[in-house]
Write a protein that binds this DNA or RNA. Structure first.
Length: 708
DNA sequence: TTTGACCGGGTTTTT
DNA sequence: CCCGGTCAAA
């Protein structure tokens, strides 16, 4: 079965799939059929060698990629293949679930995100009486991260005289331990520890896994590399797949040497290069090759393709970022009119802050879109609050969440109350113990507030097993009076926020069905999964244009790709201009962006761009000039169908003639209103309207009736 | 304790 | 420009 499929592969792919004699490095160029090779290889092992699927470990970069890989292997084998596919992070979570006791943590640990990490650091800085100006919590956070992911050693801080940072580092770890919590780096670090410092645990997994595959190997860090080695060095049963030209995460510890030195580190390693590209048009591939040739830190390879040359790369110079966005909007519209589906089109940018202006332009054209990344669903305040309530109910030691919801909604527990509680917690009492004590001894006003919190936690614990997941969320929202709070505090958009909470309930319900879990076990699993969810995990299938940063586009492909904001200081980014390695990373990023495109590639830049509210002149990116000019066709402003700034304003107002936009609306409570602005489309559009007795209000469309 | 006004500073990229 | 943080007043 699989043998027949393999016959259709090119010789290099075939070798990559069937070679098992020693550690294997597959240098897979962009679009070279990498996913195909990996899935075939797994299917091959299962069919030919009778490996049990669950004893093959495949590590991917995102959870989404993991799910897809599982599915595709399943398809190859007609339905049944429970291959152990996960990210490094979730793999370590599983390790820790079984063995955390060995390193002094309880099995139902908590995973904290970057936000929580910052709160812990702020608390520490306060305790140590350090100035948060000088000791920026985010900066300290990334220093801690760099130590943990093996990028710098702690001795480095000693040398530089950062002894306070060392102190903070140690206190931080102590606090996390007290909360039985891990941060992202800890997951890997302690996972590695289990596999390197505990012989029996290591042997167990070395014996268990018959083969280990690592995808996106160029973006592994030192700790992930140690994990890989611990699992496979003895048996040599490993295949890593990567492309040094696509290494774009060195800033968070990815070590390009992991791929460059593979042959040194793994004895008798075999290297297979996949250089035939099946994805891009000839023109696009030539551009990509030309650009990346400017880099020096690489093994070097040159991709080729049988695909047709295709249309030239389009390049648009806009006078302002506004005009650039309008151009993108209009071009997307034209492309859709000529037959591309919205889902076949992607718009990339270097920084998240660029998304807004493009969004406006798309909305204006009435184009459906989705943003991948940016402010994630789980980072919204109302979601984080409800999750904090869940966490407080589930984790006795989670002080962070307790403080988060202590006075949300307001229940008279301000700074004084906070200090009082903190003191007890520092004395070693658990959340519940501390609250119980405090209820007895606090002044009357605070007593009521603390009592309420205690009741919420106790009632929540009681309902944990009895209520259905969706009902549980509803229960928490009700008992904490959270909806009233939203209504009061967020008059403009409380409905959307309530909807988000409803959506959280739905997601949880879905998760329960998929995992087959229930009760406490379900919630623990859900919360950890949520914390580890990546941008791509939240991508939807559907007829929508996709907007994302280039980092988020890793591993994806689209028939049409826009790369916007190609300006010096933005792309390459200003923070990367001083060192050549950094420029090279930016260039790899550009290379990744180009090679996502199959047929149409559109580049654009603006001559001036708004930063912090004011316009600054810009220069076009050096990267544009690295593409041979015969591959590029400039789009002139006239033929782009673009209008001047003045008339683009009129195009905004002429939009009111679009049928969908109502001029008079009716609301149950506010009565008749005159529409001022509309954001978004359909039921979820936000309408700002003027109501005679209530003034201007912003309301979600679904709560309005449209009058003739 | 809460509220609202004011100021200042911040933008890479993310599991 | 938009947020979060700080400070004074109620």
């Amino acid at each position: 079965m699989i043998e027949n499929l393999i016959k259709e592969l090119n010789p290099q792919q075939k070798e990559a799939v069937t070679y098992f004699d020693s550690p294997l490095l597959i240098l897979a160029g962009a679009g070279s059929g990498k996913t195909r090779v990996i899935t075939y290889k797994i299917a091959y092992m299962i069919e030919k060698f009778n490996y049990e699927p669950e004893r093959i470990l495949a590590v991917t970069f995102t959870n989404k990629a993991a799910h897809e890989m599982k599915e595709r292997v399943g398809q190859l084998l007609k339905g049944k293949a429970d291959v152990f596919v996960s990210t490094f992070h979730s793999f370590c979570v599983k390790l820790l679930k079984s063995h955390s006791v060995r390193i002094g943590f309880k099995p139902n640990f908590l995973i904290i995100d970057t936000d929580d990490k910052k709160s812990v650091l702020k608390e520490i800085l306060k305790e140590l009486n350090l100035d948060t100006e000088l000791y920026n919590p985010s900066l300290i956070g990334s220093m801690i991260s760099n130590v943990k992911n093996g990028m710098v050693s702690i001795e480095n801080f000693e040398l530089k005289g950062y002894d306070r940072v060392i102190e903070i580092f140690e206190l931080y770890n102590k606090k996390l331990k007290e909360m039985n919590a891990f941060d992202f780096d800890d997951l890997l670090l302690y996972g590695k520890k289990l596999l390197t410092e505990h012989e029996d645990i290591k042997n167990r997994y070395v014996d268990y896994f018959r083969y280990v595959l690592i995808d996106e190997y160029q973006d592994t860090n030192a700790i992930q590399y140690e994990i890989t080695k611990a699992l496979t060095l003895e048996k040599g049963n490993v295949c890593v797949v990567g492309d040094e030209d696509q290494c774009i995460y060195t800033w968070r510890g990815a070590n390009i040497n992991n791929i460059l030195n593979f042959e040194k580190d793994f004895p008798h390693a075999k290297v297979v290069k996949l250089e035939k590209n099946y994805r891009c048009s000839g023109v696009i591939l030539s551009a990509a090759n030309a650009v990346i040739a400017n880099n020096t830190i690489r093994k070097g390879k040159k991709l080729f393709t049988d695909n047709e040359d295709g249309e030239p790369i389009r390049l648009f110079e806009a006078s302002t970022d506004q005009e650039e966005a309008l151009f993108v909007g209009k071009t997307v519209k034209k492309l859709i009119n000529t037959g591309f589906k919205p889902s076949e089109i992607a718009i990339f940018y270097r920084t998240n802050s660029q998304s807004r202006i493009v969004e406006d332009a798309l909305r204006r054209e009435g184009i459906n879109y989705q943003i991948v990344g940016g402010l994630k669903f789980y980072e919204r305040k109302e979601i984080k609050d409800i999750i904090a309530y869940m966490r407080v109910i589930l984790f006795e030691e989670d002080k962070l969440s307790l403080f988060r919801i202590l006075n949300v909604p307001k229940r008279g527990l301000g700074q004084a109350a906070e200090e009082r509680l903190k003191k007890l917690l520092d004395e070693g009492y658990s959340n519940i113990e501390a609250l119980n004590r405090i209820v007895l001894e606090s002044p009357l006003r605070q007593r009521e507030g603390f009592k309420e919190i205690l009741e919420i936690i106790e009632a929540g614990k009681e309902k944990l097993e009895t209520l259905k997941p969706y009902e549980f969320i509803k229960f928490i929202t009700a008992i904490s009076r959270y909806e009233d709070y939203l209504r009061k505090e967020y008059r403009e958009d409380w409905e959307t926020r309530v909807e988000n909470i409803t959506e959280l309930g739905n997601t949880l319900e879905e998760f329960a069905e998929r995992s087959g879990l229930s009760g406490e076990e379900l919630y623990l699993e859900f919360l950890n999964t949520v914390t580890l969810s990546s941008d791509q995990d939240e991508m939807e299938d559907g007829e929508k244009v996709t907007l994302m940063t280039i980092h988020a586009s890793k591993g994806l492909e689209f028939p049409v790709v826009f790369i916007t904001g190609l300006e010096e200081g933005l792309f390459p980014h200003a923070r990367s201009l001083d060192a050549n390695e950094q420029i090279e990373e930016e260039r790899r990023l550009f290379y990744v962006a180009i090679t996502r495109a199959k047929k149409v590639l559109v580049l654009s830049y603006a001559r001036s761009r708004r930063f912090f509210g004011s316009y600054r002149p810009t220069e076009k990116s050096r990267f544009i000039d690295e593409i041979p000019s015969h591959l590029i066709k400039p789009v002139s402003r006239k033929t782009s169908g673009e209008k001047t700034q003045a008339s683009s304003v009129s195009s905004i107002s002429s939009r009111s003639s679009i049928k969908k936009k109502p001029k008079i609306v009716f609301h149950k409570k506010f009565g008749k209103g005159i529409v001022k602005r509309v954001e978004g489309a359909g039921d979820t559009a936000k309408v700002t309207a003027y109501f005679a007795n209530f003034g201007e209000k912003t309301i979600v469309m679904k709560f309005l009736k449209v009058l003739a």
